[in-house]
Amino acid sequence: MFRTCLLGLVGGVLLTSACRSTSTAPAIEPASTSEVWSNTLTVGASRFYSFNVPLSGNVSVRLTELKQGGVATDEQVTLGLGTPTATDCALAGQFVAGASETAILTGPQPRGIYCIRIWDDSQLSTTTTFSVNITHPKQ
């Protein structure tokens, strides 16, 4: 009987310890990487770019450059973050922005494949080159 009692107590302690070991530790932000997407946007056109976020973590997007004829412009374009769907990028949100070093989209995202869409919503006067910098967790 004593053996049964002891086994029961030891089993209980071990299992309780096992449960304790699953307690949550402080979240650690994974290492990040950056991708640069550069291309040309004609008047009234749109483009999108897909990227993989292999781990949950912070994603930030900056529109770093807008140029017309090789010269920086203060005209604006519209950008959005979403998921590649059918032949386009289905957006979860969108912003009007000009070139800036400040992130225009930033926040935590679960792992997955996302896309950035850029388009001219009657904002551009001529063909414009752009650069978008996307920072996200890496594997």
Partner: peptide, 20 residues
């Protein structure tokens, strides 16, 4: 002693169920 054995087993079962 019997009571202790029952308590021990109860702890084991409850803790185990918590883990499950």
């Amino acid at each position: 002693m019997t009571r202790l054995a029952v308590i021990g087993l109860f702890v084991c079962v409850v803790a185990g169920a918590g883990c499950q």
